[in-house]
Amino acid sequence: MERSIETIWREGFLDEKLLVAPKVNDIYDRKSKMIVGRLKRMFSANLIFLVGAAIALVIVFPLIDLPIIGISLAVMLIGLVIPGRRYLKDINALDITKDSYHYLLEFQKWRLRKIAAYTKIYKIFYPVFFLVVMTEVYFNEMVQDLMIQSKAGNPDLMTLFMVPYPAVIGIAIITGILYLAGGALYRFDLKIVYGREFARLDETLEDMKTLRD
């Protein structure tokens, strides 16, 4: 005999065991591990990407006559990977047997340490990258010709290694700005890539802190 969906629903839930709520004790436990796990996977993927990019730079840039940029940038990227690997190892060393709150707090401290270290690295990374590009420009034949012509046309022009002073000053200013803004640029980049996960981590920690209070 066919029963209506209303009857099936009503009779189905007469059995009270179907309405027993699952335990919520480990609610934050699972959530904490999930967030840390996801961030760990993202960090690893980022490091793999950097290594891949370094290899690609070494291969591709010499082919388009930009060997200095290619090789220098590859070396710089590997320079980012080395501390990254060490930091990744540190996550694995975090004591997972601690309660979720302290586990996340430790992770949070680790995250802040990493950001502080990379902020310093990027303060150097961006200006050096800019100088590498300028070096490649400097050795460019057309630019060399231009510098010679400009010196010949204006013998009083003050130069440093044939580079006119105004250009030297311009390069110095941009390098200085990149040094000062390097940390902010890194944090902006971080926000784009990890922003959502970091917000979730902060939110969870805040919830846990409220509960403890």
Partner: peptide, 16 residues
């Protein structure tokens, strides 16, 4: 199984 009256209500609920 939804049409069978011999099936218990939990299974019917699953089916629904």
């Amino acid at each position: 199984r939804i049409i069978s009256s011999e099936i218990d209500s939990e299974q019917l609920l699953d089916a629904l």
